[in-house]
């Protein structure tokens, strides 16, 4: 009897370790799949003479970065990209604050339909949507303006912001607000001491979502940009078309720097678990 039990236990352990091994190798494979393209671009941006079946480039160089900065005027393009993203964040947030409040805290007939409509720009293929937007924007002389490109991004960014903020506002517990009033807090004190700290994480994550949406956006920009409003993703794409593979790699690496910074910010400052949990008192 004892012997049988031991055998069963050993069998269980060996199955477990095989399972663990499988999980780890799968994770490793997935990681490689995710990271390899990035590594290739990274080496490409620093390498010279990296052709054929070579593992690594023949020579290392900073030339391509120099080209990107001096010839392709990346600092100016980065400025465009950030200004457009900034405008898109402000407009999206201004739209999403009241809309999110209404969706999250009021009883609105046809709420589900409204939510679906708000998500529509994200459901239709981007190029279809972008073509329509471009046609309108040409008529309104919004093409090749910061505002125009930002507005095109807002169509994609605002739905995110609205969803995040309506969820944030929905999770605000009415009783907690009442408790602050009973404790003696005036409406203004209640807002600053209780409401604001509770919704701030939601607002910040909404800003990050809208910023990265605009910053990364390619299709909408492609249909609305002009000589004065080239953004980094579009410039990178153009460089490939012009045949400067290594220079576009350098641009692509520059492109991800702010994204990494934001990722770091989310990890350190926001603590993702705080964004989703901890609202409900019970």
């Amino acid at each position: 009897m004892m012997c049988a039990m031991t055998l069963v236990r050993q069998y269980a352990r060996s199955v477990l370790s095989a399972k663990t091994l499988l999980v780890y190798s799968f994770l490793l494979g997935f990681l490689l799949y995710m990271v390899t393209p990035f590594l290739i671009i990274f080496f490409n941006s620093f390498g010279k003479g990296w052709y054929g079946m070579r593992w690594l480039p023949q020579e290392w160089t900073l030339n391509w970065y120099q080209w990107a900065i001096e010839v392709a005027d990346i600092p100016e393009i980065m400025k465009n990209t950030l200004v457009i993203a900034g405008i898109a964040v402000v407009i999206s947030t201004l739209i999403a604050l009241p809309t999110g409040w209404a969706l999250g805290r009021r009883h609105i007939p046809g709420k589900e339909l409204l939510t679906a409509l708000i998500l529509l720009p994200r459901m239709i293929p981007a190029i279809t949507f972008a073509l329509g937007v471009a046609k309108i924007f040409y008529g309104l002389h919004l093409v090749d303006t910061f505002l125009g490109v930002a507005l095109a991004h807002v169509a994609l960014a605002a739905p995110y912001a609205i969803l995040v903020l309506s969820a944030t506002f929905e999770s605000l517990d009415e009783r907690v607000l009442e408790a602050s009033a009973v404790c003696g807090a005036s409406p203004a004190q209640g807002f600053f001491y209780v409401i604001l700290p509770l919704i701030l994480p939601g607002i910040l994550s909404s800003i990050i979502f809208t910023f990265t949406t605009s910053y990364n956006e390619f299709t909408m920009t492609l249909m609305t940009y002009g000589p004065h409003t080239v953004t980094l993703p579009v410039r990178t794409y153009l460089a490939v078309g012009e045949g400067y593979w290594e220079v576009s790699s350098a641009m692509a690496v520059i492109l991800i720097i702010p994204s990494l910074f934001i990722l770091f910010l989310i990890q350190r400052q926001l603590q993702p678990e705080k964004l989703v949990g901890g609202f409900k008192g019970v």
Binding site: D173, A179, A181, C183, G184, V282
Partner: peptide, 28 residues
């Protein structure tokens, strides 16, 4: 208004401020 009535209240769902510690809740 409520905040001028000098009341103390205990709620069914506790209604503590989730972003404050127990100390800060009582201190509020």
């Amino acid at each position: 208004p409520t905040y001028k009535r000098n009341l103390g209240m205990v709620f069914q769902n506790f209604a503590l401020f989730p972003h404050m510690t127990a100390f800060e809740n009582v201190e509020f």
